[in-house]
Computed example of a mutant assay.
Amino acid sequence: MKNYQKFAAVYDSIMDDSLYDQWTDFSLRHFPKKKKAKLLELACGTGIQSIRFKQTGFDVTGLDLSQDMLDLAAKRAKTVHVDIPFVQGNMLDLSSVGTFDYVTCYSDSICYMEDEVEVGDVFKQVYDHLNEGGIFIFDVHSTYQTDEVFPGYSYHENAEDFAMVWDTYEDEAPHSVVHELTFFIQDEDGRFTRYDEIHEERTYDLLTYDILLEQAGFKNVKVYADFEDKEPRDTSRRWFFVCEK
């Protein structure tokens, strides 16, 4: 467990902290003003965004596939004295979590779904667990990001107690990429342990997302880009969808 905690700490340290501020600000601009609204954060990871939402005044539940990540999230919430239920679960089946006023799924987590059928299934699950008039906000990589920016991307980081190599390649399916991550993390005895991870991500064109959201039942869908309240351009890297039930 100690190694995993270090591993997740490495994840958190390479994540640009300002993104959480931007996700929070974007959400607050697009959620209706409602006191004590119930919010479900999908793919909540180590809980940083869930805590931001809780501190803003929402009644937050966090859901993630990884129990290890959730253990860290619970520990983090306890440290800052906030009470958030963190639920281990799959966003393809939300039957255990009840209903919410708002649902978010940030950090391109939808792009980890295997195909558009799964993406559509997530949208339907979210729709079914939103209260009437509820809002679902998520972001995904643009096709420009997967096709032009990511292939050939390489990032290396060296710190005292860890090193990381991150390479991204084009994958076989349209608009899909593979991230190969290698971490070297220092143990208590000073030795470095190697961890390898492969992350496969896939996105779709705007029309596909629109159709899948409509099929799920969403009636009012707005699309923005790169944390701003502006329409996507050809070179936008991250698309944001604000969907109303």
Results as ranks from 00 to 15, higher is better:
residue 166 W to N: 03
residue 108 D to W: 02
residue 57 G to S: 05
residue 8 A to T: 06
residue 89 G to I: 05
residue 115 D to V: 03
residue 182 T to N: 07
residue 79 T to F: 13
residue 25 D to A: 12
residue 115 D to M: 04
residue 67 Q to A: 14
residue 127 Y to F: 14
residue 92 L to A: 01
residue 98 G to A: 10
residue 170 E to C: 06
residue 163 A to W: 14
residue 146 T to W: 00
residue 36 K to Q: 15
residue 96 S to M: 13
residue 145 Q to V: 13
residue 82 V to A: 00
residue 33 K to N: 11
residue 221 V to M: 05
residue 167 D to R: 09
residue 231 E to T: 12
residue 46 T to I: 04
residue 17 D to Y: 06
residue 61 T to E: 00
residue 13 S to P: 05
residue 3 N to Y: 12
residue 142 S to Y: 00
residue 145 Q to S: 14
residue 1 M to K: 08
residue 56 T to V: 04
residue 14 I to R: 05
residue 22 Q to P: 01
residue 63 L to G: 03
residue 64 D to T: 03
residue 101 D to W: 12
residue 235 T to F: 13
residue 220 N to V: 07
residue 130 L to C: 06
residue 15 M to R: 08
residue 149 V to F: 03
residue 154 S to D: 02
residue 223 V to T: 03
residue 232 P to T: 11
residue 240 F to S: 07
residue 119 V to K: 02
residue 140 V to E: 11
residue 151 P to F: 07
residue 183 F to I: 08
residue 214 E to D: 08
residue 95 S to C: 11
residue 178 V to H: 14
residue 206 L to Q: 09
residue 92 L to E: 02
residue 237 R to M: 14
residue 68 D to Q: 14
residue 183 F to T: 13
residue 69 M to Y: 02
residue 209 Y to S: 07
residue 168 T to M: 15
residue 244 E to M: 11
residue 141 H to R: 09
residue 6 K to W: 09
residue 58 F to A: 06
residue 84 I to Q: 01
residue 226 D to M: 05
residue 104 T to C: 08
residue 221 V to F: 04
residue 243 C to L: 03
residue 114 E to L: 14
residue 147 D to Q: 07
residue 146 T to N: 09
residue 124 K to M: 13
residue 238 R to K: 08
residue 86 F to W: 00
residue 60 V to T: 03
residue 32 P to F: 04
residue 212 L to W: 11
residue 114 E to Y: 09
residue 212 L to G: 09
residue 210 D to T: 11
residue 144 Y to N: 07
residue 166 W to F: 02
residue 242 V to N: 05
residue 228 E to A: 08
residue 22 Q to H: 00
residue 144 Y to S: 12
residue 131 N to P: 05
residue 83 D to H: 13
residue 143 T to S: 09
residue 93 D to Y: 04
residue 215 Q to W: 12
residue 61 T to I: 09
residue 30 H to E: 06
residue 122 V to F: 04
residue 56 T to R: 13
residue 197 E to P: 01
residue 111 C to V: 02
residue 19 L to F: 00
residue 198 I to P: 09
residue 26 F to A: 11
